[in-house]
């Protein structure tokens, strides 16, 4: 039994090492400055992924700007306002349901709700991602709000502050760590998302500024990887993007761990 356990754990670790190594070995040699800094051109048969990088940045920023206030707001409602236990249970069940829905379904619903109304665009993709990431942000902020001591709130109320003032001055500063963790987790999820974006944000490789970018279709890095690998057979490019995504995933995991540790230590003091 002990042997089986160690074997399985070793297998898991080996899998991670293999995936990481294989992608990096196949991808890193294909990354060049030209690839990172140009857009694809049919004339010179050159492939560049700058538009995809920019699209990814736009969609991450747009989705976060919208989802953060919504997520923080609903977490505050749950911890500060909602008195009825059944209501809280209902909202939490809804959030759990949202996080269980597969991304293909988000893609379809996003297409019906957003793309059909204002066109296939990064903004439609970002709005779809907002719904997907809402439960994540809500939960992390909720967890961090629970660590704000009740006595702080009571102290503020005792000094005659109104509810909103207490939330603004006592509760909100306490959820900074939740917001940061929620941000990191959401960025990770958005970077990895493809099925939900294929039908909402499309897969164009045009280079655009922020405003044009958000209102026109565009592929994020992940979607571009899929298109290059599956539709165009450009495996070199696909592995280059995969290597970039791997490094980003690693960075996101490290920073999530770091932030968690940092705030845990600060709270302990």
């Amino acid at each position: 039994m002990r042997g089986a356990m160690m074997l399985c754990t070793a297998l898991t670790a080996a899998l991670v090492l293999f995936l990481m190594g294989y992608v990096l070995v196949n991808g890193l040699p294909n990354i060049s400055w030209e690839l990172l800094s140009t857009k694809p051109s049919y004339l010179t048969e050159r492939i560049g992924i700058l538009p995809d990088i920019l699209n990814t940045v736009y969609i991450v920023v747009a989705a976060l700007v919208i989802v953060l206030p919504l997520g923080v707001g609903s977490a505050i409602y749950l911890t500060e306002y909602a008195g009825n236990k059944k209501l809280v249970a209902m909202i939490e069940y809804a959030a759990e349901t949202l996080s269980g829905i597969p991304s293909v379904i988000y893609g379809l619903v996003g297409m019906l709700l957003f793309s059909n109304n204002f066109g296939t665009s990064l903004l439609a993709g970002a709005l779809t991602l907002v719904i997907m990431n809402l439960p994540t942000v809500m939960r992390t902020v909720q967890e961090s709000l629970k660590t704000v001591p009740q006595s702080y709130r009571e102290g503020a109320f005792g000094l005659g502050a109104g509810k909103w003032r207490v939330i603004r001055t006592v509760v909100l500063p306490g959820c900074v760590d939740g917001v940061i963790t929620g941000c990191i987790l959401s960025i990770g999820r958005i970077l990895g998302e493809s099925a939900a974006l294929l039908f909402t944000a499309g897969f164009a490789h045009a280079m655009n500024g922020v405003i044009d970018g958000l209102t026109s279709p565009g592929a994020t890095l992940t979607v571009a990887l899929y298109v290059y690998a599956k539709e165009e057979g450009e495996f070199g490019i696909a592995f280059a993007i995969a290597a970039i995504l791997m490094v980003l995933t690693l960075l996101i995991n490290l920073s999530a761990a770091f932030v968690g540790k940092y705030f845990a230590k600060r709270r302990g003091v």
Binding site: L15, E193, S194, T222, A229, F235, F239, L245, T249, N253
Partner: peptide, 14 residues
Amino acid sequence: NLLAGIPSVVYGLV
């Protein structure tokens, strides 16, 4: 955690 964070298209590609 890294395994959980790898995008599904990368799994598909490998």
